[in-house]
Amino acid sequence: MAYSLPNLSPTLLQSKDKPSAINVPLSSVSIPTASAQTKLEPPPPRRGAVQVNRTSGAQDKQQEPKNEFYVNLGLAVRTLREDLPLIFTKDLNYDIYRDDITFRDPLNTFTGIENYKLIFWALRFHGRILFRDISLDILRVWQPSETMILIRWNLRGVPRVPWEAKGQFQGTSRYKLDRNGKIYEHKVDNLAFNFPQTLRPAASVLDLVAACPASPNPTFSLWGPVDDGPSSSWVEFYRAVKDTLDRESLMISQDCLATCS
């Protein structure tokens, strides 16, 4: 016997104890918010960006010594301009020199900052004794290369003896700098004498030098032994400075021998 079932909708077939998912309110559903995503670890930096930073740091480290050199070079030029005209009245600023600096002239060589200080002390001391007036003028400052400073100067003075007129001579100081911009060598050369006429013997080396026109460029370098030159206050001045350095070196040597023995 066949029965005809009524056309029931799917909603009527659901149990009354189990509510339909369609009837669940949306407010009760938990939806992830943006704050939960912020806890994720950031992505690692790209390899290309890290390489750029390393390259930049290496360039900065290479640039630091170069910057230090130019800073010390500018300080050296400025200090020499200020110190040299006053070498007979005040001491130098020795911050621009290395402790193992070497001083050279046509006859002698001295090494060490203490000897270098002694040279300029002797210049001031004996300059005041032998001359009523003595001064040094800077004629030119230039750089033939990045690691060298050249200064052309003129030294003039009035001796304390009545029979000798004032005299002067020019020279060039060459300062060599290391990679840090510190001066490690000072060489005096290219000397041109201009002693009083009455003191110059005929056909001497000094006559040949005096005949050359004064030039700020290092075009000649003539210097004979001190004993071959005329007896003047300038020669006595040089001898006095040299004797001071020789006596000091002798005393240092004797102290070393006494200490070692």
Rank of each mutant, 00 (worst) to 15 (best):
L75T: 04
F88S: 06
L26W: 13
V50A: 13
L206P: 01
G167I: 00
K187P: 04
S233H: 00
A258I: 10
D83C: 06
T172F: 06
A202Q: 15
A2I: 08
D255E: 12
L136F: 00
I252P: 14
R98T: 11
K61P: 08
D255C: 10
T172Y: 07
G181N: 00
A122G: 03
F125P: 01
R132Y: 05
K61Q: 15
I252D: 13
P85G: 04
D207Q: 03
R179V: 07
S35Q: 15
P230D: 09
A34G: 09
S15Q: 15
E82D: 14
W121Y: 13
A122D: 03
V235T: 14
W163T: 12
P106R: 02
M1I: 11
R179M: 13
M148H: 08
L80G: 01
Y116V: 03
G224Q: 06
M251Q: 12
Q143T: 14
P144V: 09
C256Y: 11
D137W: 12
Y94P: 02
F110V: 07
S30N: 07
N194H: 09
T219P: 03
G181A: 02
P25H: 13
A214Q: 11
F110S: 04
G181R: 00
G229M: 05
K39I: 15
R160G: 12
Q63L: 14
K90H: 04
D91Y: 03
R81S: 14
R98H: 07
V161P: 01
E82H: 15
V188W: 02
L107F: 15
S232Y: 03
A165G: 12
T111E: 05
G181Q: 01
L84G: 05
D137C: 06
Y116L: 08
L150T: 07
A240E: 05
T79L: 15
L75H: 07
Q59D: 13
S4W: 12
P85S: 03
V158G: 02
L257Q: 09
Q170H: 05
G157P: 00
I183H: 01
V24D: 09
Q59I: 12
S215G: 06
L73H: 03
Y3R: 07
P225I: 11
D91I: 02
D99Y: 08
I138S: 01
P44W: 13
P218C: 12
F125L: 08
S56W: 12
T33P: 03
R104K: 14
M1Q: 11
F69H: 07
D178C: 06
D91S: 13
E185L: 04
F103K: 02
Y70P: 06
L177A: 10
S249Q: 10
L12A: 10
L191G: 07
S231M: 10
D189L: 06
Q62L: 10
K242V: 09
E236M: 07
S27K: 11
P144S: 08
Y184N: 02
G57Q: 09
Y3I: 14
L136I: 05
A34C: 10
A240I: 07
L8R: 13
S35Y: 13
N154E: 04
P225H: 15
A58G: 07
A49M: 05
W163I: 03
P144E: 05
T219M: 15
N190T: 11
E236I: 04
F110M: 07
P65H: 03
L130S: 01
K90V: 05
R140N: 08
P106T: 08
I138Q: 03
L136C: 03
L13G: 11
P201I: 12
T79S: 14
D137N: 06
A165W: 01
G167Q: 00
